[in-house]
């Protein structure tokens, strides 16, 4: 990152190769749109190049990157609305022992996640999918660790309710059965 701070774009390319997939997954879970996630991932690295001089070596690079990703998502969601779609199968990794019922369950869960307010969705994504600890999320979002814990558990409760409502929706269930 020190080289990037001095304007070395080759070094930025190396950082991109190492971190872009995790950022793409974060954006995909946040936006539900594959093309928006590609754009947002590229935007993060442009911002890294532009804001390189503001990087504090005391802060771990990954967390600084997530902070930029968080700001990038907020800025872009203010300016434009992207279409969220039911995910296509090829957009997800195929675990072994996959079943149709399980796929439907995960598609509904993905949809339920997209129904949450972005700040609540982000807490669940960072803690469950991106592997960040509560204290790291607190540092990233500028809130106390205990506040993160309370908010994560409450967001999980809201996700449970959204998921239960979707699971009961006969129209959605019929659409899922056709997919």
């Amino acid at each position: 990152m020190t080289a990037v701070r001095e304007g070395d774009t080759h070094a930025l390319g190396a950082l991109f190769d190492r971190h872009h997939a995790a950022l793409y997954r974060y954006f995909y879970r946040m936006s539900g749109s594959a093309s928006a996630s590609e754009d947002l991932t590229q935007d993060v690295f442009l911002r890294l190049l532009k804001k390189g001089e503001t990087w504090n070596p005391a802060m771990k690079f990954t967390r600084w990157t997530y902070r930029i990703a968080h700001n990038t998502f907020i800025d872009r969601s203010r300016k434009s609305k992207w279409e969220t779609e039911m995910p296509a199968q090829h957009e997800f990794a195929a675990p072994s022992g996959r079943s149709l019922e399980r796929d439907e369950e995960h598609a509904l869960l993905h949809k339920a996640l997209l129904q949450l307010a972005p700040d609540k969705r982000e807490l669940l994504i960072l803690s469950r999918f991106q592997g960040l600890r509560y204290d790291q999320i607190g540092e990233l979002l500028g809130i106390e660790t205990n506040t993160v814990k309370v908010r994560v558990f409450r967001a999980l409760g809201q996700l449970r309710e959204a998921y239960a409502a979707l699971s009961r929706d006969p129209i959605l269930l019929a659409m899922e059965a056709k997919r």
Partner: peptide, 10 residues
């Protein structure tokens, strides 16, 4: 399942 990142370059 995790979303699969497409082949991307900077």
């Amino acid at each position: 399942p995790a979303p699969v990142a497409p082949r991307m370059r900077l």
